[in-house]
Design a protein around this nucleic acid. Structure first.
Lengths: 135, 135
DNA sequence: TTAAATTCTGACGAAATCGGTCGGGATTGA
DNA sequence: TCAATCCCGACCGATTTCGTCAGAATTTAA
C-alpha cells in the first residue's frame, strides 16, 4: 500500500499549477525544475492529466499547461484517480465478479468500506485547501 | 492503489480461522481449499502472520493454525499492516526526510490525513464484525 | 520406533509494474 | 522560417509480486 511516485509527482505538479492559476501557461520545464521531477517523466503525467480533463495545454512557443478550472474545484481525489487509474482497490468491486465466485464474500463489505472511506477523504481536499495552508 | 492479492488472501485466511476459533488447529491445506488460495503461497502468508503474532501454529500431525486471540481483538488493520509491511503510504511520513528536502511541503499534510484516515477505518473493523455480518 | 502429517525455511522463477528515457512528429508564436 | 513547446509511442532496467519447490524439523499416532 505504498503510494506511487506518480501520484506524488502528480500532486506536486498540480499544486505548482495551482499557484500559477490565472497567469500564463506554464511550460513543463518550469514545473519540472520547481518541483524536482524528471522532465520527460512529468510530460507523461501531464498528458494523462490533460486526458482526464484536469489541465489544458497550449502548444507552441509560450505554451505550457494550466488548470482547467479553479483550484477550489479540483480535488486530490480527482488527481489521484486519474493517475492511478481509479482508487478502486479491487477489480472485484467495480467490474463485477472478478474473483470468480459471484463475490458476496464477507470481505467484500470490508473493501467497500475501505474504498468509500478513502474516496471521501481525498475528495474532501481541494488544491485551494492546499494553497491556503501555505500562508 | 490496488490492494495486493497478498492482502486479500490474508483477510480471507484470517476470516477462515476466525470461523474456526476455539476449535482444533486448522491445517493450511484446509484453509487453502476452503478459500481457494494456492497452498504453498498461503504457507508464506501464514508464516508472516505468525511472526506478527496474529496466529499461532502447531506442528506435526493434527497440527495447523489458529488465531492467537479472540476475533474481536484482531482488526483488519492488524492483518493488512503485517502483510503489507505497514500502511504508511509514503516513507517520507515515517522514516524522516526520505524526500530529501526536509519535507515540509504542503502535500505532506495531505498524505498524513490520508494515512490517518485509512488506518482509522481498518482499525475499526474486527474479524468478529465480519463474522457477525454473516448471519 | 517408525510412519505420516504438518509446519518451517530459503531459494528460485515468471510476469507484471514502475520509474524513467528517447526520438521524432506536430503545432504555434515571433 | 526558426525556436519553443507539447504530443506520442516505443523502449529499458529495476523492483515487486505472485507463486512454486525441495527439503528440513517437529509432532502425533499406530
Amino acid at each position: 500500500m505504498k503510494l506511487s511516485t506518480r501520484a506524488r509527482y502528480g500532486i506536486h505538479a498540480m499544486y505548482d499549477l495551482a499557484q500559477n492559476y490565472g497567469a500564463q501557461p506554464r511550460p513543463i520545464k518550469a514545473v519540472a525544475e520547481a518541483q524536482a521531477i524528471p522532465e520527460a517523466y512529468l510530460e507523461q503525467l501531464l498528458c494523462t492529466l490533460r486526458r482526464a480533463g484536469l489541465v489544458i495545454s497550449a502548444r507552441g512557443a509560450q505554451g505550457g499547461y494550466m488548470l482547467s478550472r479553479p483550484p477550489g474545484e479540483i480535488t486530490v481525489g480527482d488527481i489521484l484517480r486519474s493517475l492511478e487509474g481509479g482508487l478502486t482497490l479491487l477489480d472485484c468491486l467495480e467490474g463485477e465478479d472478478a474473483c470468480g465466485k459471484s463475490c458476496d464474500c464477507p470481505s467484500r463489505k470490508v473493501w467497500k468500506r475501505l474504498r468509500d472511506g478513502l474516496n471521501e477523504i481525498v475528495d474532501g481536499i481541494t488544491l485551494e485547501d492546499m494553497l491556503r495552508r501555505d500562508e
